[in-house]
Amino acid sequence: MKRILQSVLFVMLLVGITACTEELDFNQFDDLEATPTYEAGIFYLEAPEDIINLVSGQSVFSQNFNFDAFSSDIFSDRVIDGVITYVVENTTSKELNITIEFLDENENVTDTEFFSIQPAPTAIIQREITYGDSGESIDIIKTLSTIRVSAENLGNNTSTSNLPEPLITLKSSGKFRVRLK
């Protein structure tokens, strides 16, 4: 009896295994469409008010940052669209103009963002720039090689904010959809 029960269980197991399988389709990869979203910080800058006061003239800061991450083939050939978010906070007594320029590898300006910042107390400025079908050309992102940031002090070099540790802060991040294949 034990042998018959084992035989019946073996046959049922064999039927169950073959009933639950289907032919493998190795062409499924061709049908796969995966577009993950990647998000990362791009830059973070801050300048304390006492440093701004040390600079004579209007130009407080001007710097080029090499940024080839977007122009690498693995990203630029697959990026679909995205958003760059800028956040500016001013707790200084200074009125400032901030300009952010995107440059390609030939140093041609492909995009510019301009911020006119009032002295503290001001609200935090947040701006989102869309690239792709619903915004600016995605080619701006694909060819980005350098980011130029400059700031001008439209105020004076003696005033001081009454807020603790006054400074101007500028940060940005990017969020982009990318095709995997």
Rank of each mutant, 00 (worst) to 15 (best):
S150D: 12
N108G: 08
D68K: 09
A123N: 14
N53Y: 07
T110Q: 02
V109L: 06
I138R: 09
D133I: 07
E101H: 01
N108W: 09
I80A: 02
E136R: 10
G132E: 05
E128W: 02
A120K: 06
L54M: 08
D73N: 13
Q126G: 00
R78F: 05
I147C: 09
N108V: 13
S72Y: 10
S56E: 14
S150W: 06
P121M: 04
R78V: 03
T130V: 15
V60H: 01
E105M: 10
F75Q: 03
I98N: 00
F114T: 13
I138F: 12
I124W: 03
D139F: 14
V55A: 13
V83M: 05
I100C: 01
I125D: 06
E89W: 06
V60G: 00
V55Y: 10
N97T: 08
A151L: 05
E136L: 11
I74Y: 05
I138D: 11
S150P: 05
I140L: 08
D139H: 11
F102Q: 01
Q63D: 10
T85H: 03
F114R: 09
N53H: 07
I84A: 08
N66F: 09
T85D: 09
I84C: 06
T146W: 12
L96M: 15
F61Y: 15
F67Q: 11
F115R: 06
I125F: 02
E107I: 04
P119Y: 04
T146R: 13
K94T: 04
S137A: 11
T99L: 08
S76I: 06
T85M: 08
I98T: 06
Y131Q: 01
S59Y: 06
V60A: 02
Q63P: 02
A123S: 15
S76K: 11
D139A: 13
A69Y: 14
I141M: 12
T92L: 02
F114D: 13
D73H: 04
G82E: 09
V79M: 10
I125L: 11
D77A: 14
S116N: 03
A120C: 07
N108D: 15
D111C: 06
D104M: 05
T99W: 01
R127M: 08
Q126E: 12
A151R: 02
V87Y: 02
I125N: 04
E101F: 01
N106S: 09
E136A: 12
I98G: 00
D73V: 07
D68P: 05
A123Q: 15
N53V: 06
D133V: 08
S134K: 08
D77N: 15
Y131A: 00
E136K: 11
A69N: 14
E107D: 13
S71W: 04
F102S: 01
G132N: 03
Q118D: 12
D77H: 12
R78H: 14
E152A: 13
K94Y: 05
E136D: 14
L96A: 09
N97C: 01
